[in-house]
Simulated assay, not measured.
Amino acid sequence: MQQQTPPPRIALVAGETSGDLLAGLLLDGLRAQWPQVASMGIGGARMQERGFDAWWPSERLAVHGYSLELVQKLLGILRIRKALRARLLGADRPDVFIGVDAPDFNLGLETDLRAAGIKTVHFVCPSIWAWRPERVDKIRAACDHVLCLFPFEPELLARHGIAATFVGHPLANVIPLQPDRAAARQALGLPADGEVLAVLPGSRSAEVAYIARPFFQAVALIRQARPAIRVIVPAVPALRVRLQQLVRECGVERAVTILDGQSHLALAACDATLIASGTATLEAALFKRPMVIGYHMHPWSWRLMRRKQLQPWVGLPNILCRDFVVPELLQDDATPQALAAAVGSWLEACQHDPQRIAALEQRFTALHHDLRRDTPRLAADAVRQLLAA
């Protein structure tokens, strides 16, 4: 009788909620390949629901606070990485290590493990195509294989001698191809008719500190021309009080409803969105919504980013479409007046230029189809092939 090959031991590190979501999907695919697969490392609730042995919870990798608190947190993260490295190179040596996002934590660890003969995978290609191209050398040294969310990334990595597989973007399977605006408005208690603007000023305190005020000042200007407009603002709990304060200071509290999260409902319900650059812009594109992308950061950070920026676009919808399909107003251009004018242009198009809206929806629908893949199966297949090599 042929002896059955035991399932592999797979170590993973996932930081933040998004990493936990991606790793959970990957574990679904791995368990379909190997029902008794053993997985361990650093992870969150979604991973643990799938039998993951969390030596440390992913929350331990989150960085918040300032000065001494921040230094203490970073020192704690370094101690965790040292202890994890020793464990993976010792008695708990895995067959493969998969770092899920968190490149600042994972790439160095992957380099050490790969040098010791452990196969390594990185899930989510760092944005070398947008900025920080120097990271490509670190990726080449760290990874046997990269699992990519965007279809152009494997070819880019191949030019640098890095093996990669496009596995699709999970959001493309979560968000329906044809969002139901009426149902979303009903769920949020909004009227079926009338204009609705969704304002998404970011989910991190640093983002809100720089962009939320001009966003709400733009709302005040928009209301002068469109006094009946309803404005909805999805907010993470930690930022709700600060956003409420800014809404009052900008004099738009009567028009603005701050939601407890519910960003997908907000994007499904709105006619257009004023949105901070980041993953939320991809969500807005998958909901086929006209948007104005705005962003502002510390001047020194802006100068650094501009020097390392590799392409003319910053927003993910424009990067993926390779065109300025939606306006980007960044740094000094992100004035309340400019933001309000750009949003007003989309709102006018919603009423009087259906061809412009239809053309945008067509671009975003094509993008949605491009990103829609069986992510768990494709990711697990790539890991299986790496282990068999």
Rank of each mutant, 00 (worst) to 15 (best):
Q2N: 10
P6W: 00
P8I: 12
V13W: 11
L22K: 07
L25F: 14
D28P: 05
Q33Y: 10
W34I: 07
A38P: 01
G43H: 08
F52L: 11
A54Y: 07
Q72Y: 07
L74W: 09
I77V: 10
R87G: 07
R93E: 05
D101G: 04
P103A: 11
F105W: 02
N106P: 05
L107P: 04
T111W: 05
R114W: 08
V121K: 03
V121R: 04
H122A: 03
F123E: 01
C125T: 15
H145P: 02
P151I: 09
T165V: 12
L171I: 10
P176R: 08
P179W: 01
R185H: 00
L188N: 02
P201M: 06
S203A: 09
S205K: 14
V208E: 03
F216P: 00
V219R: 07
A225K: 11
R226D: 08
R230S: 09
G251K: 12
A269M: 04
D271S: 10
I275C: 11
G278P: 11
T281K: 04
K288V: 01
R289S: 00
V292I: 13
I293W: 06
M297V: 15
M297Q: 14
R303F: 08
L316E: 02
I319A: 04
V325S: 08
L330D: 10
Q337C: 06
A342P: 07
L347H: 03
I357K: 04
T365Q: 13
R373C: 09
Q385R: 15
